[in-house]
Design a protein around this nucleic acid. Sequence first.
DNA 1: TATTGTTATACTCTATAACTATA
DNA 2: TATAGTTATAGAGTATAACAATA
Lengths: 154, 154
Amino acid sequence: MNKSVLGVAEAETAYFDELLGYHLRRLSVLVMSDFADSLAPLKLKPTDASVLMMIESNPGITQSEVGKALGILRANMAPLIGTLVRRGLIERERVDGRSQAMRLSGSGQSLCRQVKSITREHEKRLFGKLSDAAKTRLIAQIRGLWSSTSASAP
Amino acid sequence: MNKSVLGVAEAETAYFDELLGYHLRRLSVLVMSDFADSLAPLKLKPTDASVLMMIESNPGITQSEVGKALGILRANMAPLIGTLVRRGLIERERVDGRSQAMRLSGSGQSLCRQVKSITREHEKRLFGKLSDAAKTRLIAQIRGLWSSTSASAP
DNA sequence: TATTGTTATACTCTATAACTATA
DNA sequence: TATAGTTATAGAGTATAACAATA
Protein backbone atom coordinates (compact mmCIF):
# COMPACT_ATOMS: atom_id res chain seq x y z
CA MET A 1 0.00 0.00 0.00
CA ASN A 2 3.04 2.19 -0.29
CA LYS A 3 4.02 2.81 -3.82
CA SER A 4 6.56 5.62 -3.97
CA VAL A 5 8.85 4.61 -6.75
CA LEU A 6 11.07 6.46 -9.10
CA GLY A 7 9.25 5.84 -12.32
CA VAL A 8 5.99 5.99 -14.25
CA ALA A 9 6.91 9.09 -16.21
CA GLU A 10 4.96 10.53 -19.04
CA ALA A 11 7.57 13.23 -18.86
CA GLU A 12 10.89 12.53 -20.53
CA THR A 13 12.90 10.40 -18.18
CA ALA A 14 15.94 10.84 -20.36
CA TYR A 15 19.17 10.39 -18.49
CA PHE A 16 17.84 7.94 -15.92
CA ASP A 17 16.95 5.33 -18.48
CA GLU A 18 20.58 4.51 -19.11
CA LEU A 19 21.32 4.03 -15.42
CA LEU A 20 21.40 0.51 -14.09
CA GLY A 21 21.16 1.80 -10.53
CA TYR A 22 17.92 3.57 -11.34
CA HIS A 23 16.25 0.46 -12.73
CA LEU A 24 17.62 -1.63 -9.92
CA ARG A 25 16.04 0.63 -7.35
CA ARG A 26 12.77 0.88 -9.17
CA LEU A 27 12.42 -2.89 -9.32
CA SER A 28 13.62 -3.34 -5.77
CA VAL A 29 11.00 -0.94 -4.43
CA LEU A 30 8.30 -2.71 -6.40
CA VAL A 31 9.41 -6.12 -5.16
CA MET A 32 9.63 -5.01 -1.54
CA SER A 33 6.21 -3.46 -1.74
CA ASP A 34 4.71 -6.67 -3.13
CA PHE A 35 6.54 -8.70 -0.50
CA ALA A 36 5.24 -6.49 2.30
CA ASP A 37 1.69 -6.81 0.97
CA SER A 38 2.12 -10.58 0.70
CA LEU A 39 3.22 -10.88 4.33
CA ALA A 40 0.58 -8.50 5.71
CA PRO A 41 -2.03 -11.26 6.29
CA LEU A 42 0.45 -12.88 8.70
CA LYS A 43 0.88 -9.58 10.52
CA LEU A 44 4.58 -9.67 9.71
CA LYS A 45 6.81 -7.13 8.06
CA PRO A 46 9.69 -8.17 5.82
CA THR A 47 12.09 -7.49 8.68
CA ASP A 48 10.12 -9.69 11.08
CA ALA A 49 10.07 -12.46 8.51
CA SER A 50 13.81 -12.25 7.93
CA VAL A 51 14.45 -12.41 11.67
CA LEU A 52 12.25 -15.48 12.03
CA MET A 53 13.97 -17.19 9.12
CA MET A 54 17.36 -16.36 10.55
CA ILE A 55 16.44 -17.89 13.90
CA GLU A 56 14.98 -20.94 12.23
CA SER A 57 18.20 -21.50 10.29
CA ASN A 58 20.36 -20.80 13.33
CA PRO A 59 18.64 -22.05 16.47
CA GLY A 60 20.28 -20.66 19.60
CA ILE A 61 21.43 -17.49 17.83
CA THR A 62 21.56 -14.32 19.93
CA GLN A 63 19.93 -10.94 19.26
CA SER A 64 23.13 -9.18 18.38
CA GLU A 65 24.17 -11.96 16.02
CA VAL A 66 20.90 -11.66 14.16
CA GLY A 67 21.35 -7.91 14.15
CA LYS A 68 24.82 -8.18 12.66
CA ALA A 69 23.70 -10.65 10.03
CA LEU A 70 20.72 -8.61 8.94
CA GLY A 71 22.16 -5.15 9.41
CA ILE A 72 19.80 -4.16 12.22
CA LEU A 73 21.19 -2.12 15.10
CA ARG A 74 21.11 -3.61 18.61
CA ALA A 75 19.02 -0.65 19.73
CA ASN A 76 16.35 -1.51 17.19
CA MET A 77 16.49 -5.25 17.76
CA ALA A 78 15.16 -4.91 21.31
CA PRO A 79 11.61 -3.76 20.52
CA LEU A 80 11.49 -5.93 17.41
CA ILE A 81 12.34 -9.13 19.29
CA GLY A 82 10.15 -8.03 22.19
CA THR A 83 7.11 -8.01 19.95
CA LEU A 84 7.86 -11.43 18.49
CA VAL A 85 8.35 -12.87 21.98
CA ARG A 86 5.10 -11.33 23.17
CA ARG A 87 3.37 -12.94 20.19
CA GLY A 88 4.73 -16.28 21.32
CA LEU A 89 6.71 -16.87 18.13
CA ILE A 90 10.15 -16.83 19.76
CA GLU A 91 11.44 -18.25 23.02
CA ARG A 92 14.44 -16.80 24.82
CA GLU A 93 16.81 -18.56 27.19
CA ARG A 94 19.67 -16.91 29.06
CA VAL A 95 22.87 -18.56 27.96
CA ASP A 96 25.20 -16.33 29.91
CA GLY A 97 24.39 -13.34 32.02
CA ARG A 98 24.19 -11.07 29.01
CA SER A 99 23.22 -13.11 25.97
CA GLN A 100 20.03 -14.97 25.36
CA ALA A 101 19.68 -17.80 22.88
CA MET A 102 16.60 -17.59 20.69
CA ARG A 103 14.54 -20.40 19.22
CA LEU A 104 11.26 -20.60 17.38
CA SER A 105 8.29 -21.80 19.37
CA GLY A 106 5.88 -24.27 17.84
CA SER A 107 3.68 -21.52 16.49
CA GLY A 108 6.80 -19.69 15.34
CA GLN A 109 7.75 -22.75 13.31
CA SER A 110 4.38 -23.08 11.70
CA LEU A 111 4.27 -19.37 10.93
CA CYS A 112 7.70 -19.77 9.39
CA ARG A 113 6.35 -22.44 7.05
CA GLN A 114 3.65 -20.02 5.98
CA VAL A 115 6.28 -17.35 5.38
CA LYS A 116 8.17 -19.72 3.11
CA SER A 117 5.07 -20.63 1.19
CA ILE A 118 4.08 -16.99 0.75
CA THR A 119 7.62 -16.11 -0.27
CA ARG A 120 7.63 -18.85 -2.92
CA GLU A 121 4.37 -17.54 -4.38
CA HIS A 122 5.67 -13.99 -4.28
CA GLU A 123 8.85 -14.90 -6.14
CA LYS A 124 6.92 -16.92 -8.68
CA ARG A 125 4.50 -14.05 -9.25
CA LEU A 126 7.26 -11.51 -9.81
CA PHE A 127 9.99 -13.60 -11.38
CA GLY A 128 8.06 -16.53 -12.82
CA LYS A 129 8.85 -15.16 -16.28
CA LEU A 130 12.47 -16.11 -15.85
CA SER A 131 13.70 -19.63 -16.34
CA ASP A 132 15.47 -21.21 -13.39
CA ALA A 133 18.72 -20.85 -15.31
CA ALA A 134 18.13 -17.16 -15.98
CA LYS A 135 17.23 -16.59 -12.34
CA THR A 136 20.34 -18.38 -11.12
CA ARG A 137 22.51 -16.45 -13.55
CA LEU A 138 20.94 -13.19 -12.43
CA ILE A 139 21.56 -13.95 -8.76
CA ALA A 140 25.16 -14.83 -9.51
CA GLN A 141 25.58 -11.62 -11.47
CA ILE A 142 24.11 -9.52 -8.67
CA ARG A 143 26.21 -11.29 -6.08
CA GLY A 144 29.29 -10.61 -8.17
CA LEU A 145 28.52 -6.91 -8.26
CA TRP A 146 27.87 -6.88 -4.56
CA SER A 147 31.03 -8.64 -3.50
CA SER A 148 33.27 -6.58 -5.74
CA THR A 149 32.09 -3.43 -4.04
CA SER A 150 31.15 -4.22 -0.48
CA ALA A 151 34.70 -3.88 0.75
CA SER A 152 33.09 -1.34 3.02
CA ALA A 153 34.30 -0.53 6.48
CA PRO A 154 33.20 -2.22 9.74
CA MET B 1 27.15 6.77 5.81
CA ASN B 2 24.04 4.64 6.18
CA LYS B 3 24.74 1.01 5.67
CA SER B 4 21.78 -1.01 6.91
CA VAL B 5 21.59 -3.83 4.48
CA LEU B 6 20.24 -7.33 4.65
CA GLY B 7 23.45 -9.26 4.41
CA VAL B 8 26.95 -9.79 5.70
CA ALA B 9 26.03 -12.94 7.64
CA GLU B 10 28.47 -15.21 9.30
CA ALA B 11 25.32 -16.94 10.44
CA GLU B 12 23.64 -19.26 7.98
CA THR B 13 21.63 -17.16 5.60
CA ALA B 14 19.99 -20.28 4.23
CA TYR B 15 16.64 -19.63 2.63
CA PHE B 16 17.35 -16.07 1.55
CA ASP B 17 20.18 -17.04 -0.72
CA GLU B 18 17.79 -18.56 -3.24
CA LEU B 19 15.63 -15.46 -3.36
CA LEU B 20 16.14 -13.05 -6.21
CA GLY B 21 14.24 -10.35 -4.34
CA TYR B 22 16.65 -10.56 -1.45
CA HIS B 23 19.72 -10.07 -3.61
CA LEU B 24 18.00 -7.36 -5.57
CA ARG B 25 17.31 -5.40 -2.42
CA ARG B 26 20.74 -5.93 -0.98
CA LEU B 27 22.39 -4.59 -4.10
CA SER B 28 19.92 -1.75 -4.44
CA VAL B 29 20.59 -0.58 -0.88
CA LEU B 30 24.33 -0.71 -1.52
CA VAL B 31 24.01 1.22 -4.76
CA MET B 32 21.77 3.89 -3.26
CA SER B 33 24.12 4.33 -0.36
CA ASP B 34 27.09 4.79 -2.67
CA PHE B 35 25.07 7.17 -4.83
CA ALA B 36 24.06 9.25 -1.81
CA ASP B 37 27.68 9.42 -0.66
CA SER B 38 28.77 10.41 -4.16
CA LEU B 39 26.29 13.28 -4.29
CA ALA B 40 26.97 14.52 -0.77
CA PRO B 41 29.77 16.93 -1.84
CA LEU B 42 27.19 18.74 -3.97
CA LYS B 43 24.84 18.97 -0.98
CA LEU B 44 22.27 17.06 -2.95
CA LYS B 45 20.33 13.93 -2.10
CA PRO B 46 19.39 11.38 -4.74
CA THR B 47 15.87 12.79 -4.79
CA ASP B 48 17.12 16.34 -5.34
CA ALA B 49 19.32 15.13 -8.16
CA SER B 50 16.48 13.27 -9.84
CA VAL B 51 14.28 16.35 -9.62
CA LEU B 52 16.96 18.54 -11.19
CA MET B 53 17.52 16.04 -13.99
CA MET B 54 13.78 15.81 -14.59
CA ILE B 55 13.51 19.58 -14.90
CA GLU B 56 16.53 19.74 -17.15
CA SER B 57 15.02 17.16 -19.51
CA ASN B 58 11.59 18.83 -19.36
CA PRO B 59 11.95 22.58 -19.08
CA GLY B 60 8.68 24.22 -18.08
CA ILE B 61 7.48 21.17 -16.21
CA THR B 62 5.30 21.79 -13.15
CA GLN B 63 5.78 20.55 -9.59
CA SER B 64 2.99 18.04 -9.70
CA GLU B 65 4.18 16.65 -13.02
CA VAL B 66 7.61 16.04 -11.55
CA GLY B 67 5.95 14.52 -8.52
CA LYS B 68 3.91 12.13 -10.64
CA ALA B 69 6.90 11.15 -12.71
CA LEU B 70 9.14 10.47 -9.73
CA GLY B 71 6.54 9.13 -7.33
CA ILE B 72 6.82 12.02 -4.89
CA LEU B 73 3.66 13.29 -3.22
CA ARG B 74 2.58 16.90 -3.84
CA ALA B 75 2.78 17.51 -0.11
CA ASN B 76 6.44 16.53 -0.08
CA MET B 77 7.31 18.35 -3.31
CA ALA B 78 6.65 21.75 -1.76
CA PRO B 79 9.52 21.88 0.75
CA LEU B 80 11.80 20.00 -1.62
CA ILE B 81 11.32 22.50 -4.45
CA GLY B 82 11.37 25.36 -1.98
CA THR B 83 14.88 24.45 -0.92
CA LEU B 84 16.13 24.16 -4.49
CA VAL B 85 14.62 27.54 -5.35
CA ARG B 86 16.17 29.14 -2.29
CA ARG B 87 19.51 27.74 -3.39
CA GLY B 88 19.03 29.45 -6.74
CA LEU B 89 19.09 26.22 -8.72
CA ILE B 90 15.53 26.44 -10.01
CA GLU B 91 13.44 29.34 -11.27
CA ARG B 92 9.66 29.35 -11.11
CA GLU B 93 7.25 31.24 -13.32
CA ARG B 94 3.48 31.29 -12.90
CA VAL B 95 1.93 29.89 -16.02
CA ASP B 96 -1.64 30.05 -14.81
CA GLY B 97 -2.99 31.05 -11.45
CA ARG B 98 -2.20 27.65 -9.98
CA SER B 99 0.68 26.07 -11.84
CA GLN B 100 4.21 27.27 -12.05
CA ALA B 101 6.63 26.27 -14.78
CA MET B 102 10.11 25.36 -13.54
CA ARG B 103 13.43 25.78 -15.26
CA LEU B 104 17.03 25.37 -14.22
CA SER B 105 18.95 28.55 -13.51
CA GLY B 106 22.48 28.94 -14.78
CA SER B 107 23.95 27.53 -11.61
CA GLY B 108 21.31 24.81 -11.69
CA GLN B 109 22.51 23.82 -15.13
CA SER B 110 26.14 23.69 -14.14
CA LEU B 111 25.30 21.72 -11.00
CA CYS B 112 23.36 19.35 -13.22
CA ARG B 113 26.46 18.77 -15.30
CA GLN B 114 28.33 17.88 -12.13
CA VAL B 115 25.54 15.50 -11.16
CA LYS B 116 25.87 13.73 -14.48
CA SER B 117 29.60 13.47 -14.16
CA ILE B 118 29.36 12.10 -10.62
CA THR B 119 26.67 9.69 -11.70
CA ARG B 120 28.81 8.38 -14.53
CA GLU B 121 31.70 7.75 -12.13
CA HIS B 122 29.37 6.11 -9.65
CA GLU B 123 27.96 3.75 -12.25
CA LYS B 124 31.40 2.93 -13.56
CA ARG B 125 32.63 2.25 -10.03
CA LEU B 126 29.79 -0.11 -9.24
CA PHE B 127 29.02 -1.65 -12.59
CA GLY B 128 32.27 -1.20 -14.49
CA LYS B 129 32.79 -4.94 -14.27
CA LEU B 130 29.96 -5.46 -16.72
CA SER B 131 30.40 -5.02 -20.43
CA ASP B 132 28.11 -2.51 -22.09
CA ALA B 133 26.26 -5.42 -23.64
CA ALA B 134 25.79 -7.13 -20.30
CA LYS B 135 24.61 -3.90 -18.73
CA THR B 136 22.14 -3.26 -21.52
CA ARG B 137 20.83 -6.81 -21.29
CA LEU B 138 20.48 -6.48 -17.54
CA ILE B 139 18.52 -3.24 -17.83
CA ALA B 140 16.24 -4.81 -20.42
CA GLN B 141 15.71 -7.82 -18.19
CA ILE B 142 14.87 -5.65 -15.19
CA ARG B 143 12.56 -3.49 -17.25
CA GLY B 144 10.81 -6.61 -18.46
CA LEU B 145 10.21 -7.75 -14.92
CA TRP B 146 8.98 -4.33 -13.94
CA SER B 147 6.54 -3.84 -16.78
CA SER B 148 5.02 -7.30 -16.44
CA THR B 149 4.12 -6.55 -12.85
CA SER B 150 3.47 -2.85 -12.50
CA ALA B 151 -0.12 -3.17 -13.61
CA SER B 152 -0.70 -1.33 -10.34
CA ALA B 153 -3.52 1.07 -9.73
CA PRO B 154 -3.37 4.88 -10.26
C1' DT C 1 37.88 -2.69 29.03
C1' DA C 2 34.50 -4.71 25.76
C1' DT C 3 30.00 -6.73 24.98
C1' DT C 4 24.74 -7.66 25.50
C1' DG C 5 20.63 -5.93 26.00
C1' DT C 6 17.85 -1.91 26.90
C1' DT C 7 15.80 2.85 26.94
C1' DA C 8 15.35 7.33 25.28
C1' DT C 9 15.61 10.14 21.60
C1' DA C 10 16.34 12.40 17.00
C1' DC C 11 16.25 12.63 12.12
C1' DT C 12 14.69 11.35 7.64
C1' DC C 13 11.01 9.51 4.52
C1' DT C 14 6.68 8.87 3.46
C1' DA C 15 1.71 9.41 4.22
C1' DT C 16 -2.91 11.68 5.28
C1' DA C 17 -5.84 15.62 6.00
C1' DA C 18 -7.18 20.09 5.40
C1' DC C 19 -6.72 24.57 3.58
C1' DT C 20 -6.28 28.41 -0.45
C1' DA C 21 -6.75 29.89 -4.82
C1' DT C 22 -7.57 29.10 -9.02
C1' DA C 23 -9.84 26.55 -13.22
C1' DT D 1 -16.26 19.97 -9.04
C1' DA D 2 -11.34 19.07 -9.74
C1' DT D 3 -6.56 20.64 -9.68
C1' DA D 4 -1.94 23.08 -7.99
C1' DG D 5 0.39 24.29 -4.35
C1' DT D 6 0.92 24.63 0.55
C1' DT D 7 0.98 23.60 5.59
C1' DA D 8 0.71 20.71 9.50
C1' DT D 9 1.27 16.47 11.29
C1' DA D 10 1.71 11.43 12.01
C1' DG D 11 3.99 7.18 11.31
C1' DA D 12 7.60 4.20 9.80
C1' DG D 13 12.66 3.18 9.63
C1' DT D 14 17.07 4.09 11.08
C1' DA D 15 20.60 6.63 13.71
C1' DT D 16 23.25 8.03 18.20
C1' DA D 17 24.06 8.25 23.19
C1' DA D 18 24.00 6.52 27.56
C1' DC D 19 23.15 3.09 31.04
C1' DA D 20 23.14 -1.58 33.72
C1' DA D 21 24.72 -6.04 34.08
C1' DT D 22 28.10 -9.16 32.79
C1' DA D 23 32.38 -11.01 30.70
